[in-house]
């Protein structure tokens, strides 16, 4: 059974590895998403707005 997992340990190493990648991607993309979400807000008071533009 090439490609399967025989131990919980191997399974977890694999899935947690993927999860770590997702975490890295999500941490950085949330900034971009926030920008996308608030881009057309007429109210430009929030410093968030300015900050994300420069990130």
């Amino acid at each position: 059974m090439e490609g399967g997992f025989y131990t919980l340990q191997d399974f977890m190493t694999y899935t947690k590895g993927i999860t770590y990648l997702i975490m890295i991607v999500s941490l950085f993309s949330i900034t971009g998403f926030w920008l996308f979400l608030t881009d057309r807000d007429t109210d430009t008071q929030s410093p968030e707005h300015h900050k994300t533009e420069h990130h």
Partner: peptide
């Protein structure tokens, strides 16, 4: 990182939640 589980494990392998 993908290969963190070792070279023998391939992406398509099926195993659900532990």
């Amino acid at each position: 990182w993908i290969g963190a589980a070792g070279a023998s494990t391939v992406l398509g392998s099926s195993a659900d939640a532990s």
